[in-house]
C-alpha cells in the first residue's frame, strides 16, 4: 500500500484530486502531506493566463497545451471561476473548451471556485500548484477568473504571466486596467482574425515604448494568435520558453519564487490566524460581542482588534 505522498509522486490522478479537495477544505490531514511534498517541488514552469472576460482564455490554454503535448510536456491546468458570495456555489465551465485534453492521461485539469478570495485566484491555488509540481507536471497553467477586475495577484504566483487582449474590446489599450498592463511578460492579441487586431498590436507597441518594464525587467513581447485559424500558438510557446530561459539565466526564477513563497507564507499565517479567531467557540463569542460594541459606538474597531490580538498572544 503506497502512502499518499508516493501516490502523488507517481502521478496518481485520484490521489492528486483528493488531496486538492482536502487542501481546498483546509483539512488538517492535508497539511502533513503538503509538508512532505514540498521537497519534491520546484521543477514545474508556472504560467499564469489572465485578461478580460470573453477574450478566449480557455481556448488559448487548450491550443497552447496541444502544442506543448506534441512536445511531450506533462501539463497541469488550474481553471478558476468565481464563487457566488451569496450562495457559496459556483459554475465551473472551463473544461468545455479543453476538447480531447480532458481525457489525456498526461494532462490534469482542475476547476476551482474562488471561494471568497479576491484578485482572481483561489485560496488553495498555492497548494494545488505544489501538488501538481510534485506530481511531475512540467508546466502548470493557471487561468484566472477574468471578470475584468485587476487580477494582478497572478504575477506573484506565476513565473511567466500572459495577458490576453482581443481587438475591439474596450476600444483602446488605455482603458485596460493599468495594473493588468504592467504584469505581462507576454501579451497575446487573440482573435487576430478579427478586424482591428493590427490596431491593437500597434497600440500595444506604442504603450510598451513609453512604459518601462516593471516586474520582470524585460520588455514584454507581443504574440498574435487566432483560435479560429489555429495560428500563433507555436510562436507563443516559443516566446514562453524564451522568457523562462531569460528567468533562469538571470537567476530571476529564484526572485520570482521568493515572491511566491512569501505570499504562500502570509496566506498560511492568515488562514491559521483566522482559524484561531473563528474556530474556538470562546473567541467566536468574544468577536461577536466586540462587533456589537463597535456598532453601538462603545468601542472603536482598533481597540476591538487589540482585544482579540492580546487574547491570541496570551
Amino acid at each position: 500500500m503506497k502512502t499518499v505522498e508516493q501516490q502523488i509522486l507517481a502521478g496518481d490522478q485520484q490521489a492528486i484530486a483528493r488531496l486538492i479537495t482536502a487542501v481546498e477544505n483546509n483539512s488538517p490531514v492535508a497539511i502533513d502531506v503538503m509538508r512532505s511534498l514540498h521537497r519534491h517541488t520546484g521543477h514545474a514552469h508556472i504560467i499564469g493566463v489572465t485578461g478580460v472576460m470573453g477574450g478566449g482564455k480557455s481556448s488559448l490554454i487548450y491550443k497552447l497545451s496541444s502544442v506543448m503535448r506534441k512536445k511531450g510536456l506533462k501539463i497541469g491546468i488550474i481553471a478558476i471561476d468565481p464563487t457566488s458570495p451569496f450562495t457559496g456555489g459556483a459554475l465551473l465551465g472551463d473544461r468545455i473548451r479543453m476538447g480531447e485534453l480532458s481525457d489525456d492521461p498526461d494532462v490534469f485539469i482542475r476547476s476551482m471556485g474562488t471561494r471568497g478570495m479576491l484578485g482572481g485566484l483561489s485560496g488553495a491555488v498555492y497548494d494545488v500548484i505544489e501538488i501538481l509540481d510534485a506530481a511531475g507536471k512540467d508546466v502548470i497553467l493557471i487561468e484566472t477568473v477574468g471578470v475584468g477586475q485587476a487580477e494582478v495577484d497572478i504575477v506573484k504566483v506565476a513565473d511567466t504571466t500572459i495577458v490576453l487582449l482581443v481587438p475591439g474590446l474596450g476600444d483602446s489599450i488605455q482603458t485596460i486596467k493599468a495594473g493588468l498592463m504592467e504584469i505581462a511578460d507576454i501579451f497575446v492579441v487573440n482573435k487576430a482574425d478579427k478586424p482591428g487586431a493590427d490596431q491593437t498590436v500597434a497600440e500595444l507597441e506604442s504603450f510598451l515604448d513609453v512604459y518601462a518594464p516593471t516586474v520582470s525587467q524585460r520588455k514584454p513581447v507581443i504574440v498574435s494568435t487566432s483560435v479560429k485559424e489555429n495560428m500563433g500558438f507555436e510562436d507563443l510557446h516559443e516566446q514562453i520558453q524564451l522568457h523562462y530561459m531569460f528567468l533562469q539565466k538571470n537567476e530571476k526564477v529564484v526572485e520570482k519564487r521568493k515572491i511566491r513563497y512569501e505570499v504562500v507564507l502570509v496566506e498560511i499565517i492568515r488562514k491559521r490566524l483566522m482559524g484561531l479567531i473563528y474556530d474556538q467557540k470562546r473567541l467566536t463569542q468574544t468577536v461577536d460581542q466586540l462587533v456589537s460594541d463597535v456598532v453601538q459606538r462603545k468601542l472603536d474597531p482598533y481597540t476591538a482588534a487589540d482585544t482579540i490580538f492580546s487574547s491570541l498572544i496570551k
Binding site: 459554475l91 472551463d94 468545455i96 473548451r97 489555429n230
Partner: peptide, 10 residues
C-alpha cells in the same frame, strides 16, 4: 472546414 466548438454559456 474544421469543426465548431460550443461556447460555455449557461
Amino acid at each position: 472546414f474544421g469543426e465548431y466548438q460550443e461556447l460555455a454559456i449557461y
